[in-house]
Simulated assay, not measured.
Amino acid sequence: MSISDQIERLATAKANIAAAIESKGVDVPEGASISDMAALVVKIPVFTEEEVFLAAHPVGSYFKTASKGDPGEIYGGRWELDPSLGAFRWRRIE
């Protein structure tokens, strides 16, 4: 691999890192180095268990559980209990 290929690869990697950080809502200043960006990573918001659960179960999806408890009471959102045999099947409606 030539030096120019390596420089291009690093430039692409740097742009990808900046894009990933900015996709999480953290601004990357123009001309920031990779080291500068590493320091910005700590500013990326951490998602709660509830946010992850709701993102994994968009409106219209189902959640099966052995418990009759409404998942909305734990994770949020609005859920409807569907008739099912065996496990309780909840459908997210909002």
Rank of each mutant, 00 (worst) to 15 (best):
S2K: 03
I3G: 00
S4L: 00
S4Y: 01
D5E: 09
D5I: 02
Q6F: 01
I7H: 05
E8D: 07
E8H: 06
E8F: 12
R9M: 09
R9V: 10
L10Y: 15
A11C: 12
A13M: 11
K14A: 13
K14D: 06
K14G: 09
K14Y: 06
K14C: 10
A15H: 10
A15Q: 14
A15G: 13
N16E: 11
I17Y: 06
A18D: 02
A18R: 14
A18L: 04
A19V: 08
A19L: 13
A20P: 00
E22I: 06
E22Q: 10
E22L: 10
S23T: 05
S23I: 03
G25P: 03
G25E: 05
G25F: 09
G25C: 08
V26H: 00
V28A: 04
P29D: 08
P29Q: 04
E30G: 02
E30C: 01
G31F: 02
A32Q: 05
S33L: 09
S33Q: 07
I34C: 09
I34L: 15
I34D: 06
S35T: 13
S35H: 07
D36Q: 12
D36N: 14
M37S: 05
A39I: 00
A39R: 06
L40Q: 05
V41C: 01
V42G: 01
K43Q: 11
K43R: 09
P45V: 02
V46Y: 00
V46N: 00
V46D: 01
T48L: 09
E49F: 04
E49V: 06
E50L: 01
E50C: 08
E50I: 01
E51S: 11
E51Q: 15
V52K: 15
V52N: 05
V52T: 11
V52E: 14
F53Y: 10
A55E: 13
A56K: 13
A56E: 14
H57Y: 13
P58M: 13
P58F: 14
V59T: 13
G60A: 08
G60H: 11
G60V: 07
S61C: 09
S61F: 15
Y62P: 00
Y62F: 15
Y62H: 10
Y62I: 15
F63Q: 15
K64Y: 06
K64E: 15
T65D: 12
T65N: 10
A66W: 03
S67D: 07
G69M: 06
D70M: 03
G72W: 06
E73S: 04
E73P: 00
E73T: 07
I74M: 04
I74G: 07
Y75K: 01
Y75M: 02
G76R: 01
E80V: 13
E80Q: 06
L81H: 07
D82V: 13
P83T: 12
S84D: 15
S84Q: 14
L85N: 11
G86A: 12
A87Y: 11
R89D: 04
R89S: 13
R89T: 15
